[in-house]
Design a protein around this nucleic acid. Structure first.
Lengths: 147, 147
DNA sequence: GGAATATTCCCCACTTTTCCCCACTTTGTA
DNA sequence: TACAAAGTGGGGAAAAGTGGGGAATATTCC
């Protein structure tokens, strides 16, 4: 099965809906067709996981010890942003208010395929993110990937 | 049988009632439809467990050694706050006075889905809680979840 | 013990949001 | 160039959230 890749600049309508690029829809596994869980990204963007991928993550959280204060905090601050959504007949999803707010998304959004997830960015926020990163694509690749 | 997730800022009316978000109601297992047990959270909030989940917890407490002073104290301080509630025809529950007091809940409340339970927070208390936590979300996630 | 008062619960009514469906425009392709 | 698929927008029915009246039940006080 394919992983998500590519980018697209799509509109977010007044109802908070955004289309998922057809190419990314096609990369979905049969188990996950039409259902995603969106949640807060580590960066100021929205992460979108296909159902099966998300269930894998959730079962990891479930296995943690809930009597550990740090675990409760982690689970709380991750799950509170999570929202399960389904594609409508036009291949769109509705973004939740809290996440649109967090990612400062308004009329348009950048959709980026990132391996096992899809990321949704406000175009300006993404530019700012790029500017704040050390502009050394090659060195980063070398340090992360080894030689 | 999904787990609870998401957040909502709902009103608490003069009668102490608060609606449970439809999405969370839908995440209930058939055995637990409509019945919850609310109790005091470890944090300054109210924990809300679906019936089946609560019964599981109760049997855990029952299996502890009651001749251990600490066990008796734990069980006592958890159960004294517990209260079984049922959804009314509009999908709401009534919060108990002692718990509203404990969680300093007044006119509005933040409802957070946290895996096997629902948490009810006073909005201000939640902000304060967040501020008091070490803001190392990313590092924590990495250490707890591995990479 | 009984009346006055308070509380709980059930029901109805209103407002807002969500979701389903239809329609149009644009893009890509045969 | 025609056709199909992809992307965009909006109307309207249905559901969700909110507030309050009033009967039934419990509590308090004389």
């Amino acid at each position: 099965m394919g992983s998500f890749k590519g980018q697209a600049d799509y509109s977010v309508d007044k109802k908070g809906r955004i289309a998922i690029p057809a190419k990314m829809r096609l990369a979905l596994r049969p188990e996950a067709v039409g259902t995603f869980t969106m949640t807060r990204g580590f960066e100021p963007c929205i992460y979108l996981y296909p159902l099966d991928e998300w269930l894998r993550k959730e079962s990891q959280y479930a296995s943690l010890n809930q009597y550990d204060r740090r675990v409760r905090h982690l689970v709380r601050t991750i799950l509170m942003w999570a929202d399960e959504v389904t594609l409508d007949a036009q291949g769109r999803i509705g973004l939740s208010k809290p996440l649109m707010d967090y990612a400062t998304i308004t009329a348009r959004a950048l959709i980026i395929g990132a391996m096992d997830r899809i990321e949704i960015w406000d175009p300006d926020a993404f530019q700012k993110y790029l500017k704040d990163q050390p502009d050394d694509h090659e060195a980063l690749a070398e340090s992360v990937m080894g030689s």
